[in-house]
C-alpha cells in the first residue's frame, strides 16, 4: 500500500524541483544558502577559534585589509573575515530556530481556529490580532530586559512576534480546503477531527507553509540583527552584534569601512537568498501566482 504513495510523493517532489530549477533567482538563493549552511556546520573544524578570542587576538586595532587580514581587523585586533564567517552560525541558527517556533505555533493556531470555527476561532483570532499589532521590537526589548540575555531569549522574542502572519495564512488556506465537498464526504464517512486535519487539511496546507517558512527565515535574521545592533543580544558573535560593536568603537568616524561592510553585505545576501527561494517556491506551489498563461 504505502509503496505507490511514496512513489507518488517522490514523483511530486521531482516535479516541484523540475519547475523550481527554471527559476534562476531561486536557484541562486538555494545554492548560496546550501553553501552557507554547510560551511556553518563545518566552521568549528575549519576555523581556529583562538582568532575569535579578544585576549589571544594577534592583530592591531582597526587595521585595514592586508595580506594577513583580508578584511582587516576589529577594535580588539581580531580578523573581520573570521568574525563574519563565524557570525553566520548564530544568524542562521537564530533565523531557523525562531522560524521553527513561529511556524509551529502559527500552523497550530491557524488550523485549529479554521477547523473548529465558532468561539474557538474568535478567541484564537483575537489573540492573533493582539500579537499582530504589538510593536515587535518593543516586545522583544521588554523580553530581553526581563529574561536572561542569551541567544535563546532572542529566538523566543522573534518567534513570539512573527507567528501571527503564519497563523493568518494557514487559517485562510485551511478555510479554503475545508469548504471543499470532499471534507463533507470524509465527515459523512465517519472521519473525526484528527482524521480530517491529518489526512486532508495538512497535506494541502503544508506546501504553502513551507514556502512561507523560507520567507520568515529571512525576516527573522533581520530581526536578530536589529536587536543585536540595538545591544539586545547574548554574548555570541553575530552579524548584528558586529555592527553594534563597530558603531560603539567609533569605526564609523575612523573610516573603518572594512568593519561595517562585511556583516552588512552578509545580512543582505542571506536575506535576499531566502526571499528568492521563498518567492520561487510560492510560484511553483501555488499555481495562481504563475505569471504568464
Amino acid at each position: 500500500m504505502s509503496a505507490p504513495v511514496w512513489a507518488r510523493r517522490r514523483a511530486a517532489a521531482a516535479q516541484v524541483w523540475q519547475r523550481f530549477r527554471t527559476n534562476r533567482g531561486g536557484l541562486f538563493g538555494a545554492a548560496f544558502i546550501a553553501l552557507l549552511v554547510a560551511f556553518s556546520l563545518l566552521a568549528p573544524l575549519l576555523i581556529d577559534q583562538d582568532g575569535l578570542d579578544v585576549v589571544r587576538a594577534t592583530g592591531g586595532s582597526l587595521e585595514p585589509p592586508s595580506g594577513e587580514y583580508w578584511l582587516g581587523t576589529d577594535e580588539s585586533g581580531r580578523s573581520v573575515l573570521l568574525l563574519t564567517l563565524w557570525g553566520a552560525r548564530v544568524s542562521l541558527l537564530v533565523g531557523f530556530a525562531a522560524t521553527l517556533l513561529s511556524v509551529v505555533v502559527g500552523t497550530l493556531v491557524g488550523v485549529v481556529s479554521a477547523h473548529f470555527g465558532g468561539w474557538v476561532s474568535a478567541v484564537l483570532m483575537r489573540i492573533t490580532d493582539f500579537f499582530l499589532v504589538l510593536p515587535a521590537l518593543v516586545l522583544a526589548a521588554v523580553l530581553m530586559a526581563v529574561l536572561p540575555k542569551s541567544m535563546w531569549t532572542v529566538i523566543m522574542a522573534i518567534g513570539i512576534t512573527s507567528w501571527p502572519t503564519t497563523a493568518r495564512l494557514v487559517r485562510a488556506q485551511t478555510l479554503a480546503v475545508e469548504s471543499r465537498p470532499y471534507i463533507e464526504r470524509s465527515r459523512a464517512l465517519g472521519g473525526g477531527h484528527g482524521h480530517i486535519v491529518g489526512k486532508h487539511v495538512l497535506p494541502s496546507v503544508l506546501p504553502l507553509v513551507f514556502a512561507n517558512t523560507t520567507l520568515v527565515v529571512g525576516g527573522s535574521i533581520i530581526a536578530e540583527s536589529t536587536l543585536a545592533f540595538l545591544g539586545m543580544s547574548g554574548p555570541e558573535i553575530s552579524w548584528g552584534s558586529m555592527l553594534d560593536r563597530a558603531n560603539q568603537s567609533g569605526a564609523v568616524t575612523a573610516g573603518a569601512w572594512w568593519y561595517l561592510l562585511p556583516p552588512g553585505v552578509a545580512i543582505v545576501l542571506v536575506v535576499l537568498s531566502f526571499t528568492l527561494v521563498g518567492r520561487a517556491l510560492e510560484t511553483v506551489l501555488d499555481p495562481r501566482l504563475k505569471g504568464d498563461r
Binding site: 500500500m1 505507490p4 504513495v5 507518488r8 471543499r180 465537498p181 470532499y182 463533507e184 464526504r185 486532508h200
Partner: peptide
C-alpha cells in the same frame, strides 16, 4: 470535488 485530488482511488 467530492474526492481529494491528492488521493488515489484506493
Amino acid at each position: 470535488s467530492a474526492l481529494n485530488p491528492r488521493h488515489t482511488v484506493y
